[in-house]
């Protein structure tokens, strides 16, 4: 028997999921699965695990497999630990022709890790992502929920220093 969602996450998180469920028709609870996965992922330090996905499935009356499918289809869900600050660098066309590769190189050197890795202290990880819809601010990146545009190495240093 897998654990219920309320045994796995805070009551605040459960309440948030409930709020999302209320946006959809009563018989369409499954519509809240994307929000639910995001909420439990945020609470779990940025990544999902089997127990959490099963908890979401139970809460939304969904087959486990239907939740795994969603959790593996969308790129914002993580299945391995990420940094406290997950740095997502856009590498699509407008950013690429404006030097996104140099931005990625700079971050890799700065943190001594490669794309897909986490720093030893668990604070930072780097991910390459596709166009984030901020192309006129290329090159750009997202850290957590925040966008940072028109990047230069100097600007990156200031941004990173500003993180707690």
């Amino acid at each position: 028997m897998s654990k219920s969602l309320s045994q796995l996450v805070s009551s605040k998180a459960v309440a948030e999921v409930e709020l999302w469920i209320s946006k959809y028709p009563a018989e369409q609870k499954q519509s809240a699965v994307m929000a639910a996965l995001r909420i439990v992922q945020d609470e779990n330090g940025g990544y999902l695990n089997r127990e959490l996905m099963d908890g979401v499935a139970g809460f939304l009356d969904m087959p486990f497999i239907a939740v795994y499918e969603v959790a593996s289809f969308y790129s914002m869900y993580e299945h391995n630990p990420v940094g406290k600050y997950k740095i997502c660098v856009c590498n699509s066309i407008s950013c690429m022709i404006n030097g996104s590769e140099k931005i990625i190189d700079y971050l890799e050197k700065k943190f001594g890790i490669g794309v897909g890795e986490v720093t030893k202290d668990g604070r930072f990880s780097i991910k390459e992502v596709e166009c984030l819809g901020a192309c006129v601010g290329a090159p750009m990146m997202m850290i957590g929920k925040e966008y940072y545009e028109d990047l230069t190495p100097e600007k990156i240093d200031i941004i990173i220093d500003g993180l707690k």
Binding site: K23, M34, R38, Y77
Partner: peptide, 27 residues
């Protein structure tokens, strides 16, 4: 009126994939 948040998938911009996604499925 409600907002629905995606989770990273270009294909969900295709209108019927988008509907699938609101229904809580793969896009």
């Amino acid at each position: 009126l409600h907002s629905h948040l995606g989770a990273g998938a270009y294909i969900c911009g295709e209108e019927t994939a988008l509907l699938e996604s609101i229904e809580g499925k793969k896009g």
